[in-house]
Write a protein that binds this DNA or RNA. Structure first.
Length: 949
RNA sequence: GCGGGGGUAGCCGAGCAUGGACAAAGGCGCAGGACUUAAGAUCCUGUUCCGCAGGGAUACGAGGGUUCGAAUCCCUCCCCCCGCACCA
């Protein structure tokens, strides 16, 4: 066991890295190629957990690997503060909402002692304090995780410098003509009189609330007075037989333009938030029962239909009026059955497998009452079937013969064109805010958008993606699709933290739109700070980022040297060589990141690559605060050790798979990791083996090591970090174990010494602290000047050269040969239940080798014929048959030609001692004695064996 | 329904592009053994079935096909996951 105090060495090396500023990236022109890596900045509304940590950790591994490859690496970090959640939290805490206060007490106590917690949480009534507190803690967490970040460039998204930068970004977009204004539906709280997001809604994080567009259809009751039914299936209007109304619900009149609409009280209120012209008439409310039995005119065919009562109609969904299509809607069918009215369903959709879909599904499922909950499910089934497979029939006029999926929108537009249909929005489920206020859909009349539809923009986006690399590759095609789908996107809201919208100051730029090109800011953030915020105007950014404008002109306002440096830094570091994040960002953040670069920056500043790793779950379940199963990143060091966590992230899954954080597996890995560290420790103060001392086994281990090292470097380049970890930890340790078995513990200590430096280097991106420690310990022994040692961090090394000469196929084949021979002998001993007194091994005779060489490249069917030409004897046929059965194909033979050149007898003689030790008996090699006639079964590379009991 | 990804031993998970040493890496679990007063850790062995000679049979979602040979290539089908779409 190792006596290492991991926590201590983590802290020691983190401190030394920081003191030596080795991760502060400076321009090094000419000497090294640069590599600029970014991972999205964290949102500072609370502590990060180990799931978030995966992405940052992998980002750091890449940064460290690139340094080893000789790149001048910039890996910066900042903090995301803009948006509504932090503000909402601050508001809740200011109001003293118990649940939120309690949650934040817990969060804060991750970091602080009991006494301070209260005052800190109290300070969270101010949003800025929330953001600052967590930004500070998260940056400490990141340092504690050993991330090789250049912290000088840190910023947050509400500081003036950032605001100026975002203003510039929006001016650029505005100039391109893609910033537009229009109507837009949003989730809205009446009580709080404001838009609400996922974080404001009760259980909004678990059960998302989306906005559903209903179509309202007017059924004329009398002149200009209509009952307004809402539907999700406007194409079924051709099959309407009656209206449904809830007799117990209350209805009112709303004046919309010149018309009077009758809807439920709830719907009237919603209409008020959705249509500017809707005006509630000051008349009394009427019970739904009032309308029962009245006749209305359906708008397509002008038929008179009845208003009927139905309990399933919910006054708080849609308009509280529903039109009935009993042929295709299970609810309608059942409700009519309940009323025992003779209303014939009108079938308007032809679909294979059904005559009257609604009737049949109800019968099949045994649904008999409109209170039956399975009606929902029946509706789903019918909807799905009809939507994808159904075709409108001859009752649908010009739309006949077309499948629903293709015609739905056209029918809707046609109805709107006839002025019988309108849009009504509803939430996808009933929802309330965390404060208990009802959530409805409101339509903003003058929402600001980014319009992603112009073809010049999409073309540039596609081109940009085409020229990029994605890891894993499959996401490239997916990203192209996302660009095609992208249309209008709201980019400002009335609430939240952030940059004021430059064209209308009461709007705040929305938080996904203000985090699209900020990577550019990293290149210059530390320098920009030296300028006053007022100086950061459009002209300055134009010059720095786009090279537009006159430096001399600008120098009148800002320091010319600083300006020059700023421009240089940007030109040096940009573009962003790799953005590493997680797949859920593809359809939002990443596509904006790419599109905004495509719109604003010159082509040579476009991003080069994106890599993505999947998320992390714990014990097979998603991590979430509501499940209470999150482990804060801040606790990693204490609970597991940072290097162990990092190793787990590297090894448990490849990028494309979810990491499952299982304590059992973590424990298993800990044992492995400790054993690894033990191997290094046991080789401290031990002499390397010199080349003239090398035995077969030494060469074998060196060959195994350098082969694995070579493969690992290749794999790291394409971010197959899992394979690197498995190779360089698990597989290599197994090799060493085998080596020790073959040789001795003592010799193992020495051979590990031969490979230790190179081994530590390749492991250092994954487990940097222990590697740094072992690296220094192994140097310390040798003396050397202190100063020199201080500078020689393993983090600053370059990848070891692959000692190709040590990769020795022959040596490896010899050992494989021996292993398989031993397996065969053991197999025989087991099957025959013999304890051997002597084991006889017979290698293939010379003539067999000759025939083998002569025919190995021939197709199987010619082999015997050819062999017989060379040696006319029945034993030749037996041998060739035996050989064909046992030896691999032509192709693999070529790959392993060396294997077949193996001098079997030599190897056996050399290993006679080992074989004797292994079996505890005499070994006879190619002796004449052959009582059971085994010798004739020998083929090249597969000796015959006789075990004597 | 469309797009994407999958289905491999008790479980997790590699292999599949370039078919052949594949009864299938590695890990976990389980069983036996060594060590130990004991537990743990560690190490060894085993973990489809049959076999007193290194072998054979059956196997990689199901079924067909191509091939001397298929986990790997082709076709059909089934199932799972994600995104989209969509659900009075």
């Amino acid at each position: 066991m190792t006596g290492i105090n991991f926590k201590e060495i983590e802290e020691k090396w983190q401190r030394k890295w920081e003191e030596s500023k080795i991760f502060d990236a400076e321009i090094e022109k000419g000497k090294k190629k640069k590599f600029f890596l970014t991972v999205p900045y964290p949102y500072t509304s609370g502590p990060l957990h180990i799931g978030h940590g995966r992405t940052y950790t992998i980002g750091d591994m890449i940064a460290r690997f690139k340094r080893l490859q000789g790149y001048n690496v910039l890996f910066p970090m900042a903090f995301h503060v803009t948006g509504t959640p932090i503000l909402a939290i601050a508001d809740s805490i200011a109001k003293g909402e118990k649940e939120v206060v309690e949650r934040y007490r817990n969060y804060v106590s991750i970091y602080e002692d009991g006494e301070k917690v209260e005052s800190i949480v109290n300070s969270f009534g101010n949003a800025e304090n929330v953001a600052n507190f967590f930004a500070e803690r998260i940056s400490e967490d990141f340092k504690r995780m050993g991330y090789s970040i250049d912290w000088r460039r840190r910023f947050n998204t509400t500081e003036p410098m950032y605001n100026k930068f975002i203003e510039w970004q929006f001016k650029k977009l505005y100039d391109k003509g893609v910033i537009k204004k229009g109507k837009y539906p949003i989730a809205f709280s009446i009580e709080e009189d404001s838009a609400v997001g996922e974080d404001d809604i009760e259980e909004g994080d678990i059960n998302k609330v989306s906005i559903i567009e209903y179509t309202t259809i007017k059924f004329e009751l009398s002149n200009d007075t209509y009952l307004i039914a809402a539907t999700l299936r406007p194409e079924t209007i051709f099959g309407v037989t009656n209206l449904w109304i809830n007799p117990a619900a209350r209805y009112v009149k709303v004046k919309v333009g010149k018309e009077i609409w009758i809807v439920s009280v709830e719907a009237a209120e919603k209409l008020g938030y959705q249509r500017e012209e809707a005006e509630l008439l000051e008349e009394e409310e009427v019970e739904g029962g009032f309308f029962v039995g009245k006749k209305v005119k359906e708008p397509v065919g002008g038929r008179e239909i009845s208003v009927l009562p139905a309990s399933f109609v919910d006054e708080d969904v849609g308009t509280g009026v529903v039109y009935s299509v009993p042929a295709h809607a299970p609810y309608d069918y059942i409700a009519l059955e309940d009323l025992r009215l003779e209303i014939a369903p009108i079938k308007i959709i032809d679909i294979e497998g059904y005559e009257l879909p609604a009737k049949e599904i109800c019968e099949r499922m045994g649904i008999e009452s409109q209170e039956d909950e399975r009606l929902e499910e029946a509706t789903q089934i019918i909807y799905k079937d009809e939507f994808y497979r159904g075709v409108l029939n001859e009752k649908c006029g010009e739309f006949a013969g077309i499948e629903i999926a293709a015609i739905k929108d056209e029918v809707k537009n046609w109805l709107k064109g006839k002025n019988v249909a309108d849009v009504f929005y509803e939430t996808s489920r009933k929802a309330v805010t965390r404060g208990g206020g009802k959530v409805i859909v409101a339509v903003l009349q003058d929402q600001w958008f980014i319009d992603y539809t112009p073809s010049w923009w999409k073309d540039r986006g596609h081109k940009l993606v085409e020229e990029m690399t994605f890891y894993p590759e499959k996401y490239k095609a997916y990203m192209q699709d996302i660009i095609d789908w992208l249309a209008l996107r709201p980019c400002a809201r009335k609430r939240g933290l952030g940059t004021r919208f430059p064209f209308e100051k009461e709007w705040i730029i929305e938080s996904l739109s203000d985090s699209t090109i900020y990577m550019a800011l990293y290149t210059i953030a530390h320098l920009l700070r030296q300028l006053p915020a007022e100086a950061l105007d459009e002209k300055l950014f134009d010059y720095v980022f786009l090279g537009i404008g006159d430096a001399e002109e600008l120098a009148k306002k800002v320091d010319a040297d600083i300006l020059k440096r700023i421009r240089e830094e940007f030109e040096y570091w940009y573009p962003n060589d790799l953005r590493h994040t997680a797949p859920p960002h593809l359809s939002n953040h990443l596509v904006f990141f790419l599109m905004h670069h495509a719109a604003i920056f010159l082509e040579n500043q476009w991003p080069k690559a994106i890599s993505l790793n999947e998320l992390m779950i714990r014990e097979g379940r998603k991590m979430s605060k509501s499940k209470g199963n999150v482990i804060p990143l801040a606790k990693v060091s204490e609970l597991y050790g940072v290097d162990l966590y990092r190793l787990y992230c590297a090894i448990n899954a490849d990028f494309a798979s979810v990491v499952n954080w299982r304590e059992q597996d973590v424990d298993a890995l800990r044992r492995k990791f400790n054993a690894l560290v033990g191997l290094f420790e046991q080789s401290m103060g031990v002499e390397k083996l010199k080349e003239n001392e090398f035995t077969h086994m030494d060469r074998w281990l060196l060959s195994k090591f350098y082969r694995k090292l070579k493969e690992s470097i290749e794999r790291f380049e394409t971010f197959r970090i899992r394979e690197v970890g498995l190779n360089m930890v698990f597989n290599l340790m197994n090799d060493i174990k085998y080596y020790e078995y073959r040789e001795s513990e003592e010799r193992r200590r020495r051979i590990v010494r031969n490979i230790m430096a190179d081994w530590l280097i390749i492991l250092s991106p994954i487990v940097p602290h222990i590697c740094e420690e072992m690296w220094h310990r192994s140097r310390e022994e040798k003396g050397g000047r202190r100063e020199e040692r201080r500078l020689k961090f393993i983090s600053l090394q370059t990848l070891p050269e692959i000692k190709e000469a040590l990769i020795d196929d022959r040596v490896e084949r010899e050992e494989e040969y021996l292993v398989s021979l031993i397996e065969d002998i053991k197999e025989i001993m087991k099957i025959a239940r013999i304890t051997p007194s002597k084991i006889y091994i017979y290698t293939a005779e010379k003539w067999k080798w000759e025939i083998f060489r002569a025919i190995k490249d021939l197709p199987d069917k010619d082999k015997i014929k050819e062999a017989m030409k060379l040696r006319k004897d029945k034993s030749t046929v037996d041998f060739v048959k035996q050989m064909m059965k046992n030896l691999p194909s032509k192709k693999t033979m070529e790959e392993h030609i060396l294997y077949f050149e193996l001098k079997e007898e030599e190897v056996l003689e050399r290993e006679r001692e080992y074989l004797m030790r292994e079996f505890g008996c005499e070994i006879g090699i190619n002796e004449e004695y052959d009582p059971k006639g085994k010798k004739k079964f020998a083929i090249p590379l597969k000796p015959a064996i006789y075990v004597e009991g």
